[in-house]
Design a protein around this nucleic acid. Structure first.
Length: 288
DNA sequence: AAAAGCCCCTGGACGC
DNA sequence: TGCGTCCAGGGGCTTT
């Protein structure tokens, strides 16, 4: 499921119920997520206050009063659902869903359940002082919505690459947070073919060209639009309140094989190809 | 070092 | 209705 807009939507849903609250109790109903949870996982969270909740790429980082950071990734099918432990209709609101693997009971009465059928998601506790050295975060490229991300940076990261532009944008070391959907949609907005060599958005010296600029604008625009819509809901993604994101209704190319290209005057037909064992959707007429 | 495969896991859609 | 097959929004690890 979740790419940057969905993870950001989850972060915004969790923030009001986590920020400033303490972990009153933690249930690790299954410890075999992507990696096993440590045996003292619940004990290290219990009693800690949340002092911050930020997103980095597709990771969520929960700052704890203990000086540790709870690092979480939703994998392909992870989601959070917020309910309340107290109040009437408690039974109905807090019913257990299949694949609720971890449940946080917060001091403010919020019950936060992490649900993940495929268990590609992960949770990890690390010392805040060691965040810089964390292997999962260390190699991540720039935040696409951050100030540092621009055409020069993207062109520099693509210069000399032997891979396709699709593969380069999917590489979290080049730019952090895009996945299969938003790579396809960003390339569409920039009118660039996913098959194009990544190196062609840089000049010989590694500097940016007009394609890099268009791509940066396409990436930022599609991510901002998707966040504003609450992300995309295909199979799994739901917001923390259980509502669906709406951006899937605005896909130009993703999962639209055979449909007419929505660009005015284009008239092309959306095509599906396979790159790196994953589907790519694009318009072969206006994306070059 | 970079790039390409392999694999983790469950469930939904589809064809027969 | 029941099966088998394929596919899915990610990314770490291993192999080339």
């Amino acid at each position: 499921m979740p790419e940057l807009p969905e993870v950001e939507t989850v972060r915004r849903g969790l923030e009001p119920v986590m920020q400033g609250a303490r972990f009153a109790a933690v249930e690790a109903r299954r410890r075999d997520l992507r990696w096993p949870l440590p045996s003292d996982f619940a004990a290290r969270l219990q009693g800690q206050a949340v002092t911050g909740l930020v997103r980095r790429a597709k990771y969520l980082l929960v700052d704890l009063s203990s000086g540790e950071v709870l690092l979480m990734h939703l994998g392909m099918s992870g989601s959070f659902r917020v309910a309340h432990d107290c109040g009437q209709r408690t039974h109905e609101r807090t019913q257990h869903l299949t694949h609720d693997h971890v449940v946080f009971h917060m001091s403010n009465g919020a019950r936060i359940a992490f649900n993940d059928p495929r268990r590609f998601g992960s949770m990890k506790l690390i010392r805040r002082a060691e965040l810089e050295q964390e292997p999962l975060l260390r190699a991540l490229g720039p935040e696409p919505l951050g100030n540092a991300f621009d055409a020069a940076l993207l062109a520099g990261a693509c210069a000399g690459k032997k891979t396709s532009l699709k593969a380069a944008l999917s590489d979290q070391r080049v730019v952090a947070g895009l996945g299969n959907i938003y790579v396809c949609e960003a390339l569409y907005r920039a009118r660039l073919s996913p098959k194009r060599s990544a190196a062609t958005i840089a000049t010989r010296g590694g500097g940016p060209n007009e394609r890099a600029q268009a791509l940066v604008e396409g990436i930022r625009a599609v991510l901002n639009d998707a966040i504003a819509a609450g992300g995309s809901s295909l199979r799994d993604h739901k917001r923390t309140d259980g509502e669906l994101g709406l951006f899937q209704h605005h896909f130009a190319v993703y999962d639209r094989e055979g449909r007419r290209c929505p660009r005015r005057g284009c008239g092309g037909t959306i095509k599906r190809i396979v790159q790196g064992a994953r589907s790519t959707f694009f318009c072969p007429v206006c994306q070059r």
